[in-house]
């Protein structure tokens, strides 16, 4: 709650604090479960339906449990022409990981991103909040193996 109080100071009304509050709830619960959404609604004194309506608009709020590590791989045009789609296939072959899915052991979830602003070093991805670029068929696994 202290974190939310700090957030509220930055906005002229409670509703303004909703996006950052959803991030706080997502961090605490791992994803935006019904319970997490209701907590956020209660903290800001907003209707739960309003909160859910906002949360479902944005791609980075998660509405199902995620693996321990979230791979966000870009396949937009610049990454596509540098081979990103092949990397998606390889993730499926190696880990059985589908876009939007999670590995059976709960280690990785994969989300296809729409441009992460690293087109000069394509293909690129975020693993949790770590940025990795200049990916190829070999180094992507060297990188991912470091995430237990």
């Amino acid at each position: 709650m202290d974190e939310i109080k700090e957030i509220l100071k930055k906005y002229p009304d409670r509703r303004g604090a909703l996006l950052p509050t959803l991030y706080v709830a997502q961090k605490a619960y791992g994803w935006l479960s019904q319970e997490a959404l209701e907590e956020a609604a209660k903290a800001l004194n907003l209707p739960p339906a309003t909160v859910k309506g906002v949360a479902t608009f944005y791609a980075m709020y998660k509405h199902k449990p995620m693996g321990r590590h979230l791979i966000q791989l870009c396949t937009n045009v610049a990454c596509m022409i540098m081979g990103a789609e092949r990397l998606v296939d390889l993730l499926k072959e190696r880990y059985g990981l589908e876009p939007g899915g999670t590995t059976e052991d709960g280690r990785f979830s994969l989300v296809i991103m729409e441009c992460i602003g690293a087109c000069d070093r394509a293909p690129a991805m975020l693993v949790d909040t770590d940025f990795h670029a200049d990916l190829n068929e070999n180094n992507i696994f060297e990188i991912l193996e470091k995430y237990e």
Binding site: K10, L19, P20, L22, F57, Y58, A59, M60
Partner: peptide, 8 residues
């Protein structure tokens, strides 16, 4: 202050 977007 920084306001963080959420992927839109």
């Amino acid at each position: 202050s920084v306001h963080q977007g959420a992927g839109a």
